[in-house]
Design a protein around this nucleic acid. Sequence first.
DNA 1: GTGAAAGCGCTAACAA
DNA 2: TTGTTAGCGCTTTCAC
Lengths: 334, 334
Amino acid sequence: MVTLKQLAKELNVSISTVSKALNDSEEISEETRKRVKELATLYNYKPNKVALSLKQNKTKTIGVIIPDILNYFLSKVLYGIEREANKHGYNIITCISNESLEKEKASLELLANGSVDGFILSIAEETQTKNEINHFKDTIAQGLPIVMFDRVAHDVKCDKVIVDDFNATYSATKSLINEGRKHIVFVSKIDNISVGKLRERGYNKAILEESFQPHVVLVKKGDDAQQIIKQLYKKNKNIDGVVAADSASGIIAINMARNFKKKVPKDISVIGFSSKSVSNHSVPKLTIIRQHAKKIGSKAAELLIDRLKTNGEPPQDFSTKIVKTTLVKSKSTL
Amino acid sequence: MVTLKQLAKELNVSISTVSKALNDSEEISEETRKRVKELATLYNYKPNKVALSLKQNKTKTIGVIIPDILNYFLSKVLYGIEREANKHGYNIITCISNESLEKEKASLELLANGSVDGFILSIAEETQTKNEINHFKDTIAQGLPIVMFDRVAHDVKCDKVIVDDFNATYSATKSLINEGRKHIVFVSKIDNISVGKLRERGYNKAILEESFQPHVVLVKKGDDAQQIIKQLYKKNKNIDGVVAADSASGIIAINMARNFKKKVPKDISVIGFSSKSVSNHSVPKLTIIRQHAKKIGSKAAELLIDRLKTNGEPPQDFSTKIVKTTLVKSKSTL
DNA sequence: GTGAAAGCGCTAACAA
DNA sequence: TTGTTAGCGCTTTCAC
């Protein structure tokens, strides 16, 4: 990489002249500016990012910590973050906590050494289970703002972007009830995280309002979802509706229904939290609750970048942005 | 963030003393070392990464450019990269080219300003179509090593990690033939990228060896894969085998078969390139060609980090590592 | 209009 | 054993 120093030497001017010329300073004569710029272009000069970061004490880099990159929703949020960040000249450093508290802590500390200007994260399962929040508070106290999305800690003062899981599931369940379904089961692989619990509550509320009996089926880690849903259908011939807290369960619920001669959506309706591209893994396609993952990501990035701008100023109040879900009807519901 | 300067001031010693003490230099007395370390711990001192990078002219950061983060395979490779990189004290900056040549170029240039020590990437679709490779060569010429994975450019001299797509598909097709299948169709959504073409060739070879008639169905961007496969079954009642170049096509092929009263795997066998977690989106589960995405990622990271170590030394020959696929049988084949 | 010098935080050669 | 100094690449203030 060419440096200012080298350009200066070759042009027989000082380093500061080159710097100013490249930054279009009025101080420098038109002619010198031109000469400098030409040589810079010739040598493909690019200001050294690291030196700039050191000088300006900001890296234009965001640390993103996500629990699981193989989760389609989280990947899509990451995509949204990357897009928005890029738009504002920020890069993202990605760490994967793998649902582990230790890894989450380590990532936070590792990057809190000047590598990034702030964080965007979704909390690891283990962290939520153990209800640990000190590492977040410490990071914020160090002057590194955090924006949390999806799985958030309410006791940490920071910006947040969340999905209205409770209402989304409530409405989805309600819509099955309105179809005339009476034996609606809730299937979830994510009972252990906050959003999973919220979704279950939304389902429960809708069911209880009708004085129906809630029926919750949990798929634990390592379980074979297909087997569990098979057993479910086998033991409960009267099931006529499924609300799935995750995408795989919904897909399987549809594809497995045929094994029991249940026609979808004639005999049974299925709704799942999922995304368009996964929804066509079933025949008929799954009716989904879209969470607008990309938007969640871009919103989170926006919030963080906004906060980074007003650095030093008295912190305004923190905001919690709720991204509304959309029910996208396909042929798995009436 | 606390700096050496502040610690030095508080301890009434020089900055270099503090630095040396923290780095366990023999030069410094046991006692001073202890004092320094205690205060450092107290203040939670962490050496500023940016300053270190500037000083040592390396960032311990890898730039990763992937075409599509919503692609499960690519995400998983990313995961493998992150794991391996972390193990060696490297962070990753992720850029998403979104299959665009422009974005790929931009990312490469953006990070080639001292932000990263090297790159790991898979080539964008547009780049492959237009057969552009100069931006890669330029980057390498600048002294930033590149490791390519999956979709690689053979004319660029760098380390590569690839899947043996040709043989994998050949064998998969062969295995269907050995089941007695005679009308095997190849379905692909990825005809436009190198690996897609290789897979098609592998299929063709196996088919032609039997003097069967190849039958290739391409799903273009924006097409409804379900409709296309439906039409396929409708017009070709005798299809008894499907080899899918991507995971969705395989899943759909299974789930759609029932609409035509075709029993899987009795009447029709299906194999697809996919991963374990997606394979259970179909009933019965999809028999898959596992590409060991995580391993591809960790191998790529390993190659890059190795090369970064021997920096300055005469470049050894570049290697191309082939990661073998595994056929994981489920109930969609006999 | 141009250049010298300081300083961001750190390491390391050299001096004391 | 400890301190001084230079320098990584850059910006910016202040002299000239």
